[in-house]
Nucleic acid binder design. Structure first.
Lengths: 110, 110
DNA sequence: CCAATCCATAAGTGTATACTTATATGTTGG
DNA sequence: CCAACATATAAGTATACACTTATGGATTGG
């Protein structure tokens, strides 16, 4: 199967390049939250949060669950796989550390 | 030792968000090269290469060795450590969450 | 020497980004 | 049903970015 043209890596790196977006993602790693819930703790408007979520979604880092007028977002743990893949391809210096990381990811896959 | 304020992660993600910059870094991972050597294979000007190298340098991803009028750049393997650290920390949220879930299930069994 | 080479920086430009406010769409409670 | 709510999108703006050409500083070969 043809691997995605590396554009997805660009989307991921771009998404993670913004501190607010990383903070949003880390919050979503702790559990799903609605846009309004996410808004608390960030000094930006609701549209800004929605736009950050759209960027994270394009990068495959989050997914959502719709329930009436609420939309629950959560981190997609598989989303950073291309990122790990890139690092792996980048250099072999880190092979052993990556092995340990992959073990962790493997455990989570079950 | 005081851990770097997460600004370095931003620098790294920003540096890697550009495809040309990633390609430059991957070339440098294979061995040191001068700016002029790097220029071959990229459809951008010499200043553009220098600017990309400056960005990679700010992110700690490359370092240089000066020899006369030549400047040899090479990838710094330690540079992506904060990136791996971020991934591990980010993923640990999920690990913890799974642990808590297992605890809950355990309690329900009893 | 000094002209050519190597590289970095300056300055300018078009586009992208991160935000804002305003508004549109859809959903629920009363 | 409708007013309030939850979210997304539109439109505008200020800043950042990736590039260009022009130029400056440093070094070397001939």
């Amino acid at each position: 199967m043809e691997s995605q043209p590396a554009v997805i890596e660009t989307e991921i790196f771009r998404a993670l390049a913004d501190p607010t977006r990383r903070a949003v993602l880390e919050r979503l790693g702790k559990g799903e939250q609605t846009v309004t819930e996410l808004r608390t703790g960030f000094a930006v408007s609701q549209p800004a949060i929605s736009q950050h979520l759209a960027a994270l979604r394009r990068a495959g880092l989050v997914c959502e669950r719709r329930a009436g007028r609420h939309v629950y977002y959560r981190a997609d743990p598989a989303g950073i796989a291309p990122l790990i893949g890139w690092i792996e391809r980048y250099q072999s210096f880190w092979r052993d550390r990556l092995e340990r990381l992959k073990d962790v990811l493997q455990e989570m896959d079950e």
